[in-house]
């Protein structure tokens, strides 16, 4: 009964002492949430970097980042192996870039179709289906790729590309059983729903007035999409891309199943490679303590790569924001 009277008198909440207490408690609660994030992050960076430090110092940062030899030792107490991340960094970047290159145009196309072409009766269930793709666990994507998609769909494509465009180094044959091309394409399918969902929201947020103004000036639907909707959404598209890229950089199991466990850098997409996350998941279980530290060093490296890419993305978004602001005013 009391609560009912309170709701009937909203002014009373603000003026009562209890309301102020609630305000303060709420403030502390959310602040604690924020601080927790910082604490977890600090703990994680601190402890992993600490574990990785002996590896960085024994190998040398530059050698660790640029070398291509990974020869783990078996000691419990000291670093006896050679640990260099070049092959895995290369594999991570190649698969992620391939995935973004394939997923981004397709995502924009799907999002435009959903927001500007399809009617709501088609768009709603389709948007739901795209989001459903995001709910499939990555190991399922990996196994599906391993046993069905790669051998029946991607293998003929790869064979065709290597036979017709084999003179381009990245398409050079032979096509081996598992390779960064397979991993990258499956990765593209995995990040497609994330990018599509965000870009779709952004397109929907484009003011109807601008669209209608463009139509009133005689623009075709195509011109409205490409000259009104897409340009004003550019910062959002970049943001969505970065989110997809972040997912791609960190993806583990699907890549581990499909990339081919290579031990050297191969420029060709059709020859075996290895990514940072796949290397970690493949070997941590059977590694000696010193090699586990080296795998943690790989993790720190991946974290650093993600930060660099994120900062670059922020810069780009800010630039684009400024540009579009100028264009409008």
């Amino acid at each position: 009964m009391t609560s009912r009277t309170t709701t009937l008198n909203p002014g009373g909440i603000a003026s009562s002492g209890r309301g102020r207490l609630g305000d303060r408690a709420f403030r502390w609660a959310v602040a604690a949430g924020g601080i927790t994030v910082l604490l977890i992050l600090a703990l994680m960076i601190g402890s992993t970097t600490l574990d990785a430090l002996p590896v960085f110092s024994s190998q040398g940062i530059v050698d660790f980042l640029t070398g291509i030899t990974w020869d783990p030792g078996v000691s419990r107490t000291e670093i006896t192996g050679t640990y260099q991340a070049g092959v895995f960094m290369f594999g991570t970047l190649v698969t992620s870039l391939l995935a973004i290159t394939l997923a981004l145009p397709l995502s924009i196309a799907i999002a435009l179709f959903l927001s500007d072409v399809a009617g709501p009766r088609v768009a709603r269930p389709l948007a739901y289906l795209v989001e459903l793709l995001a709910a499939i666990p990555s190991v399922v994507y990996g196994l599906w790729g391993l046993h069905f998609f790669a051998p029946t769909v991607l293998k003929p494509v790869a064979k065709f590309l290597s036979e017709t465009l084999g003179f381009i180094p990245i398409f050079e044959g032979p096509v081996v059983a598992f390779n960064p091309f397979y991993a990258g394409v499956v990765l593209a399918i995995m990040i497609l729903p994330i990018i599509t969902a965000i870009v779709h929201e952004i397109f929907r947020a484009a003011p109807a007035a601008e669209r209608q103004a463009a139509y009133a000036l005689g623009a075709t639907r195509w011109e409205v999409m490409w000259q009104v909707v897409v340009p004003r959404s550019r910062p959002g598209i970049v943001g969505a891309t970065m989110l997809g890229l972040g997912r791609a950089l960190g993806e583990t199991i699907a890549i581990a199943l499909l990339i081919g466990g290579g031990t050297t850098i191969n420029i060709s997409l059709f020859q075996q490679g290895e990514s940072i996350a796949a290397k970690i998941v493949n070997t941590f279980q059977e590694s000696a303590p010193e090699a586990i530290d080296a795998l943690i060093a790989l993790g720190v490296t991946l974290f650093a790569i993600t930060i660099v890419i994120n900062m670059a993305a922020r810069l780009i978004v800010r630039r684009l924001g400024d540009l579009s602001g100028e264009a409008i005013s």
Binding site: T69, W70, D71, P72, V74, L146, H147, A150, P151, K155, V176, A177, F178, N179, A256, L257, G260, G261, G262, T263, Q272, E274, N282, T283, E286, S287
Partner: peptide
Amino acid sequence: KGKEVSWPSGVGGQGNDGVAAAISQN
């Protein structure tokens, strides 16, 4: 020798299943 080595050739599959897939698919 070891649980992981620097393979001079060949493609890597994850687990027995991955290796078997690489063999049977090619």
